[in-house]
């Protein structure tokens, strides 16, 4: 119960931070606020029993804030960033939100109660991993055993996706440079 209340307040903090990000004028403040939201998410992961994810989330958030600050600093700070694409008045927006939640209310009721182990109700693969993971792989960290032994094919796909994004960023940023070298040679 304490965990639920803590997660509730952290989520409220994240939503308020997201509103600040959307409405603030200064881009640098928006990026720093995004870092704060990410650290809140990391604490939530730690409370939910996922320390692996908490470590990854903190490190990833630091690097993404550094990359975004590198992109925004010295550029465009004077330009007003808060102008929206079209002037949406607040009353139709509220009506839209009301009808949206009215329509997804049956779906929300189908969700399991928070804190109930949904994966034990039927024969799922999580049961197999939890019961036999240590004997079959010898790794005490079951998450590590899943991503590197049972589902290592996923990890190979992840490596390929990350590699593709590295190649993509390099090709986007090096295009003119490479063409010039080609012309020179």
């Amino acid at each position: 119960m304490m965990v639920e209340i803590a997660i509730f307040f952290l989520l409220i903090f994240m939503i308020i931070g997201m509103l600040f990000v959307l409405e603030i004028e200064n881009l640098l403040s928006a990026v720093v606020m995004m870092g704060a939201i990410g650290f809140g998410l990391s604490v939530i992961f730690l409370l939910l029993g996922a320390p692996d994810l908490a470590i990854v989330q903190i490190a990833v958030e630091v690097i993404s804030v550094v990359i975004l600050i590198r992109a925004t600093i010295h550029r465009d700070i004077k330009e007003r960033a808060d102008e929206s694409l079209s002037n949406i008045s607040s009353i139709p927006l509220l009506v839209c939100i009301f009808f949206f939640f009215l329509m997804i209310y049956p779906a929300l009721r189908l969700l399991p109660t928070f804190g109930e182990p949904v994966f034990l109700n039927f024969y799922s693969s999580s049961v197999y991993y939890l019961r036999d993971g240590f004997h079959l792989t010898g790794a005490p960290n079951i998450v590590s055993a899943i991503i590197l032994d049972f589902r290592a094919y996923d990890t190979l796909g992840e490596a390929i996706v990350l590699f593709t994004s590295v190649i993509g960023a390099l090709s986007i940023l090096r295009y003119r440079n490479r063409k010039k070298e080609h012309n020179a040679s």
């Binding site: 692996d52 470590i55 990854v56 790794a139 960290n141």
Partner: peptide, 12 residues
């Protein structure tokens, strides 16, 4: 494989 962490966290 023993404690929280792994290749992703350590790599970052």
């Amino acid at each position: 494989h023993l404690t929280p962490g792994g290749g992703f966290a350590g790599g970052v």
